[in-house]
Simulated scan of single mutants.
Amino acid sequence: MCNPAMKKKIFIFLLCSIILSGCALQRDVMTLDDRLAQAEQRYTEADQKNKKLEATLEEYRNAREQNDKELRSKTAGQNATIEELQEEIRILKGKLEETDYLLKQKINAFAELSEKREIKLESIDKTTSLNKDRIERLEQYLNFESTAQIQKGQPVSNIPSGKQAKHKLSENELYTSAKKAYDKGDLNAAREGFQKLLKEFPKSENADNAQFWIGEIYYREKWYEKAILEYQTVIEKYPKGNKVTASLLKQGFAFFNLGDKSNARLILSELIKKYPKSNEAKIAERKLKGIGP
């Protein structure tokens, strides 16, 4: 059996152990509480950051949706505008084709009218020539001096029976002579000269100019239908010549003088579009302002 002193020591030892273990447990509990508090704080901070991220993400989604809506709206508007423009282009193309067809019809009508007039003129020339021959034969039968000889101041015996030989003019001489006649106002002589140049020297470097001046002669005579056809010949036959812009301008003027403002406006607009830097284009712009819509 243990003696009382030994029991007392054992009791004191156990008591001290219990006290010491209690202190250790209390420190552990406090440490755990501190760690738990730190964990809760980190969790709270993380949760706040997460909420901020979610809010930012939500704002981004809303902004993206808004941008998508605006983009879809703009795209729809642009598509509608493109469709409207395409429709306007189709309408304008149709009107242009219709106007081009009507213009060709009018030019063809002018050509037919001009051809009929030329046939009439040829018929008149033939009739005049036949009458002249009859008069000469009558004068010869009656032994009268012919009118041609009176004008020249020559007797009948001095006129040769064949055609008198004439010096053949070169292409430059023909052009210069015809141009001088035009400048003097002798339109018939100028027309004959230019037409002779085109007939004898069709590849002359002055051919396009000669053709243009023929159109100018008809324009000055106010035979605008014929002038339009002659200008059209310049445009089609000599597209690289120096009289294309002038021919387009005078075609527009001729149509205007005929009262056809629609075709006048069309041709002058074509001139401005194809040759915007030419002097004729500037004149056409001023003329269009005068014609009006």
Rank of each mutant, 00 (worst) to 15 (best):
C2D: 10
N3S: 09
K9D: 06
L14K: 05
C16T: 12
S17R: 02
S17I: 10
I18T: 09
I18D: 02
S21W: 06
G22K: 01
C23A: 15
L25Q: 14
L25N: 10
Q26P: 00
R27Q: 15
R27K: 15
M30C: 03
D33F: 06
D34I: 13
L36Q: 12
Q48F: 11
N50C: 06
K51H: 07
L57C: 04
E58R: 11
R61E: 12
R61P: 00
N62T: 14
N62M: 12
E65T: 07
N67S: 09
E70R: 15
L71N: 10
T75H: 06
N79D: 09
N79S: 11
E83P: 00
L85A: 08
L85S: 02
Q86G: 10
E87K: 15
G94F: 07
L96Y: 11
Y101M: 06
L102K: 15
Q105K: 13
I107E: 15
A109C: 03
L113P: 00
L113S: 15
S114P: 01
E118M: 14
K120N: 11
D125N: 12
K126M: 11
T127V: 08
T128D: 11
T128Q: 12
K132A: 12
R134V: 14
I135Q: 09
S146K: 14
S146L: 13
T147W: 04
I150F: 02
I150L: 14
G153H: 04
G153Y: 03
S157D: 06
N158A: 15
I159S: 12
G162L: 08
Y175S: 03
T176K: 12
T176H: 06
D186Q: 07
L187D: 02
L187Y: 14
R191V: 01
G193R: 03
F194I: 02
F194W: 01
Q195H: 00
E200Q: 10
F201H: 12
K203A: 07
N209R: 07
A210L: 00
F212Y: 15
F212H: 03
F212K: 03
F212W: 01
E216T: 01
Y219M: 07
W223K: 13
W223S: 14
Y224K: 01
K237D: 11
Y238C: 03
Y238P: 01
K240M: 04
G241H: 05
K243E: 06
V244L: 04
S247R: 01
K250N: 14
Q251I: 06
G252V: 00
G252F: 03
F253W: 06
F253N: 05
A254W: 04
A254N: 04
L258Q: 11
G259E: 08
S262Q: 15
N263F: 08
L271A: 02
A281L: 06
K282T: 12
I283W: 04
K287M: 13
